[in-house]
Amino acid sequence: MAKRTLPLGKVSTLIEPGPVVLLSTAHRGERDVMTQSWHVMLEFEPPLIGCVISDRNRSFALLKASRECVINIPGVELGEAVARCGNRSGRQLDKFAACGLTPRPAREVGAPLIDECFANLECRVVDTRLVPSYGFFVLQVLHAWVDPAVKDPRTLHHRGRGRFMVAGETIRLRSRAR
């Protein structure tokens, strides 16, 4: 097989970590939602998630101040709303309204759940040591919600520059993990 060199700026298109999410934040009467795709599971019990958020985003300031958020996981049917949300700033408009997203009160945190998403993870910031260098927050999931009617969700995965891949068929392979 003949391979060619890939520009280093395109490596992210090969190793994108997981489904695109909508990260909601709130602090002192302000709220925001951002499209986010740079996150990773760090631990399973308790669940810890690492995520990268640019300090240029309004959500960065709200997360840093409140130290809590909700990771809302949309299905492919919310693709247009996800793209609209990712291409707008919440500094001048209410992105929930502009993107057709319904905020709902969370149980453990002040940030809102997004009703249209099939899953919502209420999180608290537990480590900010890598925020100054990398914008990397470590979040602990405090409460998780999932729509039991959604059996095999089709999630979006960002491939760069407006291109998304949709999670496909589920297969089973031998595994010792339960």
Rank of each mutant, 00 (worst) to 15 (best):
T128G: 07
A81Y: 10
N72L: 08
T5Y: 03
I15K: 02
T170A: 08
V109F: 05
R4H: 09
R172H: 13
S133F: 05
V40R: 03
R154A: 05
L42C: 10
L101Y: 07
G100W: 13
G162P: 13
Y134S: 08
L113W: 15
F164W: 15
I49M: 09
R178L: 15
W145F: 09
M41I: 00
N87F: 10
S59G: 12
R31A: 01
D32H: 12
A26C: 09
V141D: 12
F60S: 06
L139C: 08
F136R: 10
H158I: 04
Q92M: 01
R31S: 08
I114V: 15
V131M: 07
V131G: 08
V20E: 11
L121P: 00
R84E: 14
V146M: 14
E43A: 00
H158R: 12
V20Y: 00
T170N: 07
V146L: 09
M41K: 10
A106K: 02
A149Y: 05
C85W: 07
R174M: 10
F137Y: 06
K10M: 12
R163N: 13
C99G: 10
A83M: 14
P19T: 04
D127T: 04
P103M: 08
P105E: 06
L48F: 06
E77I: 08
Q36N: 13
P19F: 03
K95E: 11
C117T: 11
L48W: 10
M165H: 12
L8K: 00
E43M: 04
G162K: 11
L8G: 00
G9V: 04
A167N: 05
K95Y: 10
R129P: 02
P132I: 02
R31F: 06
P7H: 01
H158P: 04
R56K: 14
S133I: 00
E77W: 15
F60H: 15
V150S: 08
R159V: 00
V166Y: 12
H27Y: 15
